[in-house]
Simulated assay, not measured.
Amino acid sequence: MNKVYPKWSELPNIDLYLDQVLLYVNQLDNCSIVDDDKGLTSAMINNYVKNGHLEKPIKKKYNRRQLARLIVITCLKNVFSIQEISKTINGLTIEESSETMYNNFVMCMNEEKREGLPEVIVSACDTVRLYKKTHDLVEKII
């Protein structure tokens, strides 16, 4: 996983419409573990909002916090359930800001830093990497 995730300050600082969010997140394509992964879809986002995993858009626009959350969810959704992801994000953002936690996740996924990061973030990043590695090994066998 040598692709680079954008830090909080690199995310668009204007609110985006749904189609723009989909384009942005899917162009990152950082966590596509399987080749036939559709990435993020509008149906997924609507379900995340409906089930309380993502704040409702304001005037049909999504802000930087929602975008960051969708990037994390998209990265982790092949390995963890949405309930696990949402519970973890909610727990981590009680004490720290969304910006801090998102940047911690990005630093870990970009393999820039591990020391001093919450253990759950490091473990999640390692799990995604191992899942990807295992998937690639299985593909070579088949």
Rank of each mutant, 00 (worst) to 15 (best):
C75Y: 11
R129G: 06
I94V: 15
Y131D: 02
D19L: 00
L70D: 01
N26L: 09
L11H: 14
L92V: 13
L23V: 07
N104M: 06
N90V: 00
F80S: 02
E112G: 10
D136M: 11
A43E: 08
N103H: 07
I85Y: 03
E84L: 09
D15S: 09
V122H: 03
P6R: 11
K59N: 08
L22N: 08
M107L: 05
N78I: 04
V49T: 15
L67N: 07
S9H: 13
H135G: 00
Y17E: 12
Y17Q: 09
Y17G: 01
L117A: 06
N103K: 03
F80G: 02
N13W: 09
K60R: 15
L117D: 10
V21S: 04
N63H: 03
L40N: 02
T88H: 01
V72R: 01
T127V: 05
H53W: 15
Y62F: 13
A68N: 10
E119H: 04
I121E: 05
D126E: 14
D36Q: 12
R129P: 00
L40S: 06
N90Q: 08
N90H: 01
V138N: 11
V21E: 04
N2C: 01
R69G: 00
K56F: 00
Q66G: 04
E115W: 09
D35C: 10
C75M: 15
P118C: 02
N90Y: 02
L11Y: 14
P12I: 11
G116C: 02
V21K: 00
G91P: 02
V106S: 03
K38R: 06
L130T: 09
I141M: 09
D126T: 13
N104T: 02
I45P: 01
I141K: 10
K132Q: 10
S32G: 08
L11Q: 09
D29F: 02
N2Y: 05
N104H: 04
K140Y: 14
E111Q: 14
N103V: 00
K140D: 14
M44D: 10
T74W: 01
Q27A: 10
Y48I: 12
C31Q: 07
E99V: 06
G52D: 09
E99C: 12
K132I: 11
D36C: 07
M101Y: 03
K132R: 14
D35Q: 13
E96G: 01
R114N: 10
P12K: 01
R65H: 06
E139C: 11
D37E: 08
E55S: 15
E119Y: 11
I121T: 06
M44W: 08
K60D: 15
L54W: 06
Y131F: 06
S86W: 01
E119R: 03
E10P: 13
K59L: 12
P12A: 11
K3V: 05
